[in-house]
């Protein structure tokens, strides 16, 4: 998966709104382009991009600049229903909707961890590096996020 899709995906999951997600994703690449000289080879390029995106999303969510939060979350709830694949069964659409909703309802600091781990497939170390967190913090936040999701998605777990 090309970087732009990954970066955009994280931003969309975090912000819940395609327009804002595109803004953040574009800014991620513009900053990366500008700071290419600062890029240290000891991290993967993808980790570096995730780090920039995550920081931009969390800043935006924390600042007053983020308006229409509720509207954005509503959009996020519709997200999984909006583009059903031709082969998707009704049941699967329902699951996707429930998953999207459950992720959107997570607290932001847990949401970013579970998105990076279970949707983007980053390792604990990469997440710790991208978010500038201790490994133990990543582990506990991820566990809380998964436990939340399990409780919300119980009916699909049979």
């Amino acid at each position: 998966m090309a970087y732009q899709h990954r970066v955009f995906g994280v931003a969309l999951r975090m912000l819940g709104n395609a327009a804002e997600a595109e803004e953040v994703a574009q800014e991620t690449f513009v900053r990366a382009h500008r700071a290419l000289g600062d890029f240290r080879g000891d991290a993967k390029l993808s980790t570096w991009l995730y780090a920039i995106t995550s920081r931009l999303c969390l800043n935006r969510l924390a600042s007053g600049e983020r308006r229409l939060v509720r509207q954005g979350e509503d959009a996020l709830l519709r997200l999984s229903d909006a583009n059903p694949r031709p082969d998707t069964a009704l049941e699967r659409g329902e699951l996707e909707g429930a998953l999207g909703r459950a992720i959107a309802e997570l607290p932001e600091d847990r949401r970013i961890v579970v998105v990076l781990r279970d949707l983007e497939g980053l390792s604990y170390e990469e997440i710790a590096q991208a978010l500038d967190l201790e490994l133990g913090t990543v582990r506990s936040r991820l566990h809380r996020a998964r436990a939340d999701l399990r409780d919300k998605l119980e009916r699909f777990l049979r």
């Binding site: 998966m1 899709h5 970066v7 777990l157």
Partner: peptide, 26 residues
């Protein structure tokens, strides 16, 4: 088991694609 099932569900989430024209605009 319930946690494993949850993670399995999460991994099935369809990846999001950047909108058409995103690369050009960027």
């Amino acid at each position: 088991a319930s946690l494993r099932a949850t993670v399995t569900l999460l991994r099935r989430v369809q990846p999001v694609r950047a909108p058409v024209g995103f690369v050009d605009r960027t």
